[in-house]
Design a protein around this nucleic acid. Structure first.
Length: 654
DNA sequence: CTGCTCACTTAGGACTGTAATT
DNA sequence: AATTACAGTCCTAAGTGAGCAG
């Protein structure tokens, strides 16, 4: 049960960790993916018509029902819980057990028939600072007007962050801050460098300290208040079912901090008022009430969308939404559908791969470029790379927006011919660095490029082409497909039946890790990483000492037994042997833990687990190897993947 | 086409509560 | 009892891609 050296075999990616948050991923041989004919136990049936299932729903208004013909066709009625004794089950419990995946879906593009909710929870109003907390301008205390003071506090709270020293941040903040000042303040305050927020900063630090020091009762009270808020605003009724809302709190005002080198960092994110909010609910529901003395911007009844409320944010001018939790039917169906699309890609990926390889030779430049882009998306799991407005966001790219400076072609590197080196910032300004050897044919194609990388490539062009290759195929489907298929392959390769449960879980994590590396899901090494690694090492050392001590004792006992040959000494040998074995096991467990943690230093597993890996693969693996599902998914994840946990058997194949 | 709006998924990091440790 | 470490949750930014008007 030693860790399999197989993790770094040539069938997986080898991984080198470098400083400065970049992970080098070297060559993957995934070109020979075998497409099996899989058994689809649960075929996705997008053609079925969703109908109202519950009598109660019928009693509700029938506004959208003209387009429903066959109300009574439903394969499975709601699974009745065990009758009799449990008849009095609470509503809540009943809801938790609702198996939406056994019901029909809407096919007319509508997302719901009935939607009722209480609207969002607004950020608490601004509380002016006590008079003793001073702001100083040019060394002199100055009382600010409430609006100017509020914005100043946003800055004061961030004083410890490095970005308050950044030019762009300061410039943006100062510009927006001035807008909140009275004319008097404007004329007085003319230089941000003369502003002293440190007293305010101290005050907030003291406040958060005080919060930590609160008594049990006080903390409990806050907890109860939060719970009450959750119960009141955190749920909605959608088509007869109580569903959890994902984000029912409106984002509070503050200073915008984009990721990476963002041109808008430091700008004021303004406070959202009821007048900014559009409410979406069904006509026949009890409409949410705006806070006393206020109005909603609009109340609409659009059942072609899934959101409950929306507002326009002032930094990018984009729309933000309040939507349901991932455990909800509406999110779950979509998620399930996503994996079914990826499974359809599995069936025709060979054909598509053959075609794009062929297209590398095309006389037409646009065909060649398209084919190369698609190859990168497929092989490297790059994102599509939509165009973005310059100066509005950080300069990041994906496949189609890659520029010449992001790749380098080495006709010969070390002992390999045609190596392409990628180095660019992707989503969230996470660096992607990778070198791959490419086939000669492709190397030659790339070699002829000068200046602009793609010229004609656009995600829209690529996606249009993909649509023709397979219904529902877009660039991101490749990421989903490659992630899931990689997990499945890795699990097959790494799992070993006589491994202990922890060793199996390590194998799972390694399979998960292979995917995270493929998708370039990185994280900042935890602040306490070095220290916690050291602590673990200390434990290992101690265990090792224990072990050698135990071994010595065993040896002594053996010698003793050899000399005396009596029963008593024989027993002693057995006892010592057991002890050695136990310590060996403990040591192994610690070592496994250390390996897992070290390998995970800059890799984030969560993102792929949550968004790219067909949960049925994991569920099936757990069943096959008798690993409790709790070892793989925490409570939230089990809620999100309830459909998969319920339907996947141990022989499920992606 | 092209640009723009809208809806929705995907993403990393901050925050928090709790369990483990001292 | 206090402190620390870590997992889980929350937060919201940053993507993808469809659809529409011109």
């Amino acid at each position: 049960m030693m860790m399999k050296s197989g993790y770094h075999t040539n069938s997986t990616r080898s991984l080198h960790l470098y400083a400065s948050r970049s992970v080098t991923v070297s060559s993957v041989i995934r070109d020979t993916v075998i497409v099996n004919i899989s058994v689809y136990r649960f075929e996705y049936k997008p053609k079925k018509v969703k109908t109202e299932h519950d009598k109660k729903a019928k009693k509700r208004k029938h506004e959208y029902e003209e387009d429903e013909e066959d109300e009574d066709i439903k394969p499975k009625k709601k699974t009745k819980d065990k009758k009799g004794t449990e008849g009095k089950k609470s509503k809540k419990e009943e809801e938790e057990k609702w198996k939406w995946w056994e019901e029909e879906r809407y096919t007319d593009g509508s997302k719901w028939r009935f939607l009722e909710h209480k609207g969002p929870v607004f950020a608490p109003p601004y509380e002016p600072l006590p008079d003793k907390v001073r702001f100083y301008y040019d060394g002199k205390p100055m009382k600010l007007s409430a609006p100017a003071e509020e914005v100043a506090t946003f800055f004061a709270k961030m004083l410890d962050h490095e970005y308050t020293t950044k030019d762009i941040f300061r410039k943006n903040f100062y510009k927006d801050w001035r807008k909140e000042m009275t004319s008097e303040e404007k004329s007085k305050i003319t230089d941000l460098n003369k502003c002293n927020f440190s007293d305010m900063n101290e005050y907030f630090k003291a406040q958060s300290e005080a919060r930590k020091q609160m008594s049990k009762e006080e903390k409990l009270k806050i907890k109860e208040e939060n719970e009450r808020l959750l119960q009141e605003y955190g749920f909605c009724i959608m088509d007869n079912h109580k569903e959890r809302i994902g984000n029912f709190r409106i984002e509070p005002p503050g200073l915008f901090r984009g990721r990476g080198d963002h041109p808008k960092m430091g700008m004021l994110k303004r406070r959202i008022r009821p007048e900014d909010i559009i409410i979406n609910c069904s006509k026949d529901s009890k409409h949410p009430k705006p806070p006393p003395g206020t109005k909603w911007k609009e109340v609409r009844h659009d059942n072609k969308v899934t959101w409950l409320a929306s507002w326009t944010e002032n930094i990018q001018g984009s729309i933000k939404y309040i939507m349901l939790n991932p455990s909800s039917r509406i999110k779950g169906e979509k998620d399930w559908q996503k994996y079914e699309t990826a499974r359809r890609l599995k069936k025709c990926v060979d054909r598509i791969r053959a075609q794009y390889r062929d297209d590398w030779k095309s006389k037409e430049m646009r065909i060649r470029q398209r084919a190369v882009a698609l190859y990168f998306i497929d092989k490297l799991a790059l994102r599509a790379g939509n165009e973005k407005e310059e100066g509005e966001t950080a300069d990041t790219v994906g496949c189609c927006s890659l520029r010449v400076e992001h790749i380098k072609l080495y006709p010969k590197l070390d002992d390999q011919e045609y190596v392409v080196e990628f180095d660019f910032l992707g989503k969230d300004s996470i660096r992607y660095y990778n070198k791959i050897p490419v086939e000669k044919r492709l190397g030659v194609t790339l070699k002829h490029k000068t200046g602009i990388l793609w010229g004609f490539m656009r995600t829209s062009i690529l996606n249009k082409h993909l649509q023709e290759l397979m219904d529902g195929l877009t660039a991101k489907v490749f990421r989903t497909y490659n992630a899931s298929i990689t997990l499945q392959q890795q699990l097959k390769e790494l799992s070993c039946s006589d491994d202990s449960i922890p060793a199996k879980v390590l194998s799972y994590n390694r399979a998960n890790r292979a995917v995270a590396i493929l998708c370039n899901h990185q994280r900042a090494p935890p602040k306490t990483f070095e220290k916690s690694m050291q602590n673990l090492q200390t434990k290992i050392d101690e265990k090792q000492n224990q072990l050698s001590a135990a071994r010595k004792q065993l040896k002594a006992a053996k010698a003793d037994h050899k000399a005396s040959h009596d029963d008593k000494s024989k027993k002693a040998v057995e006892v010592k042997r057991k002890a050695v074995q136990r310590i060996e096991e403990q040591l192994m467990k610690l070592q496994v833990q250390a390996t897992d943690r070290e390998e995970n230093k800059q890799i984030a597993l969560g993102t792929s687990k949550l968004n790219y890996l067909d949960p049925r693969i994991s569920v099936a693996w757990c069943k096959k190897w008798a690993v409790p599902i709790e070892k793989i998914y925490n409570k939230t994840q089990r809620e999100k993947f309830a459909w998969a946990i319920d339907m996947a058997e141990k022989d499920y194949e992606f």
